[in-house]
Simulated assay, not measured.
Amino acid sequence: MNIALIAHDRKKKDMVNFSLAYKHIFAKHTIFATGTTGKKIQEATGLEIHRFLSGPLGGDQQIGSKIASDEMDLVIFMRDPLTAQPHEPDILALLRLCDVHGIPLATNVATAEILIKGLERGDMQWRNVFKK
Rank of each mutant, 00 (worst) to 15 (best):
F18Y: 12
K40N: 05
Q85M: 15
E43A: 06
H87R: 09
I76V: 11
S19M: 11
R10A: 15
T34L: 02
L74Q: 01
L74G: 02
F32K: 00
K40E: 13
M78F: 15
G58V: 09
L92R: 10
A44P: 01
G38T: 04
K23R: 15
D80C: 10
I6Y: 03
D73P: 02
L74T: 01
E43V: 05
T107K: 02
G59W: 03
D60Y: 04
A4Y: 05
L47H: 11
F18H: 10
K13Y: 02
N17D: 15
I114T: 13
P86S: 13
T45I: 02
L119I: 14
F52R: 07
G102W: 11
S54F: 06
V100N: 06
F77P: 01
I76K: 00
S54R: 07
A7Q: 05
G59D: 11
E43W: 03
T83S: 15
G122W: 08
F18K: 09
L20H: 06
M1T: 12
A112S: 13
L95F: 11
D14L: 13
V75W: 01
I91N: 07
M78N: 06
T36M: 10
D14C: 07
L97C: 05
K66T: 00
I25N: 05
R96A: 15
K23F: 09
K131P: 01
K117E: 14
L47V: 04
M124Q: 12
A110K: 09
A93L: 08
L115D: 04
K66G: 00
G35A: 10
W126G: 02
K131V: 12
E43M: 08
H29Q: 04
A93I: 03
L20R: 13
M78V: 03
G38M: 01
S69M: 08
H24R: 06
I31W: 05
I116A: 07
M78Q: 09
H87E: 15
E120G: 04
S19P: 03
T30V: 06
V100M: 12
P89S: 14
H50G: 00
D99A: 15
I76S: 03
I63P: 00
L94N: 11
M1G: 11
G55K: 05
V109L: 14
P86C: 12
I6N: 04
G35Y: 09
K11M: 13
I63K: 00
K28H: 03
K28L: 15
G58T: 06
I114R: 10
V16I: 11
M72A: 02
K131F: 09
I91Y: 11
G46K: 02
Q61Y: 00
I6A: 09
V109T: 11
L119M: 14
N17G: 01
I3K: 10
K11V: 01
L115R: 01
